[in-house]
Nucleic acid binder design. Structure first.
Lengths: 155, 155
DNA sequence: CAAGATTGAGGAGTCAATCTTA
DNA sequence: TAAGATTGACTCCTCAATCTTG
């Protein structure tokens, strides 16, 4: 309903109605998507999406990642990463490790407990993403989306 | 860089690498997009993107919209709308109007000052959206995106 | 009681300032 | 001095509780 209203209202913007629909459509669809997946993770594991993404990246990098590297990978500021890591450390899923060659760096690595926890969390994540995103689109749609987001990322 | 790392790392997720790239690619590209447009609006008019969108919808509805309607159109909670409206009222761009037939409803309408302010604000918005989004894609990409977001919105 | 709007509390995220080490 | 991490103060946003009116 809201979406139809939004799209049906060809505003006075400098943007053409088609361009405006592309922008607001993306904005709103993606907002709804993130809300759904975040809510599923929160409900089943009390972890927000950003904590999941951090944990997931650390699972793929057992040697650990510096806070700033982690921030680049998940697109979060160092300060936010630092606080999410605090939370994950409190849960025992992750640990901070000293760097021998440069004491300024704080490596973050997954713990055994964290590694054990990943499959269940990932199942929740994957189910939500499939249900609200993947399964609603064709393979062709997804390919197009990847092409588009790659173009946008090349800035 | 960050994007390439992200995409190049074919995680252990239940999601296929292609599906994961579509999800995270969309997540990250859209996050960056919103940041850019929001920053432009903030820098040039001291208004966040959500205030712009409210103002813009009200410009297209001179008779005014109820707070809850406005929330549906811009995809914000009623409480958030209420506070953004506070800010816009303080700036004199918008006003609250009583509803004669149902005193529970608070209509929000644009003021003359608000109407006068729209063109400059919209120019900033449109320029930012073009620069970071529209101009980076082909017409075909945008059509595909609209098709995709429509499918996603039909939930 | 239910619906619309507002307020309070709190989560998620940022930037700027600070602390430590190179 | 500058780089990496953390902390403080702030914004944006939501949910739950409250107030008012139907």
């Amino acid at each position: 309903m809201a979406t139809i209203d939004t799209n049906a209202c060809p505003t006075d913007s400098d943007l053409s109605p088609a361009d405006a629909e592309a922008w607001f459509g993306l904005l709103h669809a993606q907002g709804a998507l993130v809300r759904e997946v975040d809510a599923a993770l929160l409900a089943e594991h009390r972890l927000p999406l950003s904590a999941y993404e951090l944990l997931f990246r650390l699972g793929a990098n057992p040697e650990g990642l510096a806070v700033s590297e982690l921030g680049r990978v998940v697109m979060l500021s160092p300060s936010r990463v630092s606080r999410v890591v605090d939370d994950l450390v409190a849960l025992g899923l992750v640990e901070r490790r000293r760097c021998d060659t440069d004491a300024r760096i704080s490596y973050v690595g997954i713990t055994d407990k964290g590694r054990d926890a990943i499959p269940a969390i990932d199942a929740t994540f994957a189910a939500a993403v499939r249900r609200h995103f993947i399964d609603r689109l064709t393979r062709r749609d997804l390919d197009n989306l990847v092409k588009i987001t790659r173009k946008l990322a090349a800035s």
